[in-house]
């Protein structure tokens, strides 16, 4: 009993000192709790459906950030990975009867392979050329999809796929749970030593090579990792929609991903996630103004970026937290002294 009390107290102290101490961490915790608890209060199918798609696209946007935000490999054709994930998952489920929990990860491996295939020609390109080249890949794949309708279903896509689960609430828990887990994994990757190398490659690739790092390997690694997470999102999407069609490869989707991520704030993982959670439901909500929907949407995005060029979330974070000038630890904005080194803030 005493031991249990000890661990409880220890856990509480950790919780207080590690999470409650910073508003951003508290916000992430509250966000996760809210997602988990939501079905206890409402099971409105329309709302759950929107949130399911939001979670899927949040995984997708975060995976884009891993490649384009962190590693600096501007990808304007990220829908490629999403589409490959969706098609592979659909085919595996339909032709080989793989259940979703097998078809989705194996489908994502298809996207990893795509990342490798696409990554190799992209190794020598950067900036605008890279962006244009990546833009072309999903268009090429769409051409292939239309060329072999026997396998891909052509324009109609592949339908008749198994549902993800038997109830919408379970679907919701699977997708949001995966978002929380995969989001955490991606954040951990960017926080690791590999993450430092990704950052460095974005900053100056030649200097990374001169430091003895095989940049080719790490760039391909970024392509594959990003492809994997985007492929999972694609597989989930296929099982939720119960079809996988050419719309998963659309240029519009690729651009949508970039808009979500930039709006939320790139090079952060949580920024793109927040971007999707704001913009995707917003666009749905704007259906009440069908005529000016896109206009209002574009206006909101533009205004935000005009005043918050770094994206929404970094802007908010910089206003509720500040960095200690001495030890670079973040503190709540209203503190006078750093919580660690007691240096004066401001």
């Amino acid at each position: 009993m005493g031991l249990l009390g000890f661990y409880l107290r220890k856990a509480y102290t950790l919780f207080k000192n590690q999470i409650l101490v910073l508003p951003s961490r508290t916000a992430v915790l509250l966000f996760a709790l809210a997602l988990v608890c939501l079905p206890l209060f409402t099971r409105d199918p329309y709302l759950l459906r929107i949130l399911i798609f939001t979670a899927i696209f949040a995984i997708l946007a975060a995976s884009w950030d891993l490649l384009s935000g962190f590693t600096g490999q501007m990808n304007f054709g990220h829908a490629l990975f999403f589409g490959v994930g969706a098609y592979c998952t659909a085919l595996l489920n339909l032709r080989l009867d793989f259940p979703p929990w097998i078809s989705i990860p194996i489908g994502a491996l298809g996207a990893v392979l795509t990342g490798l295939i696409v990554g190799i020609p992209c190794l020598r390109l950067r900036g605008t050329y890279l962006a244009l080249t990546t833009l072309a890949f999903p268009i090429i794949l769409m051409g292939v999809v239309f060329a072999i309708p026997d396998i891909t279903g052509g324009e109609l896509g592949i339908s008749g796929i198994q549902r993800l689960s038997h109830s919408r609430v379970t679907d919701y828990y699977i997708t949001t749970g995966l978002l929380l887990i995969l989001g955490f994994v991606m954040w951990k990757i960017t926080d690791s030593k590999t993450g430092i190398l990704f950052h460095a490659i974005r900053e100056d690739e030649v200097a990374v090579r001169a430091s003895g790092i095989n940049t080719t390997r790490y760039k391909l690694y970024a392509f594959c990792l990003s492809g994997f997470f985007a492929g999972i999102a694609g597989g989930l999407y296929a099982h939720i929609m119960r079809t996988a069609g050419p719309s998963t490869l659309e240029v519009a989707l690729s651009f949508q991903i970039v808009i979500w991520a930039v709006f939320g704030g790139i090079v952060s993982i949580y920024g793109p996630v927040a971007g999707v959670f704001i913009l995707y439901p917003l666009l749905e909500f704007l259906r009440i103004l069908p005529k000016v929907r896109m206009l209002v949407f574009a206006f909101i995005v533009l205004l935000t970026l005009l005043y918050m060029p770094e994206g929404l979330i970094p802007w908010i974070r910089d206003h509720i937290e500040k960095e200690c000038p001495r030890c670079k630890i973040r503190n709540v904005a209203f503190r006078k002294e750093c919580r660690v080194c007691t240096a004066r803030l401001d």
Binding site: K193, I196, L197, H199, A200, E203, D204, V206, A207, V208, A210, S211, G212, I213, K328
Partner: peptide, 18 residues
Amino acid sequence: RPFRRLPIIANVMVSCLS
């Protein structure tokens, strides 16, 4: 050619990771 937006220690860690 430093990695300007990285802390100095991270600049050197890149070499240490070779």
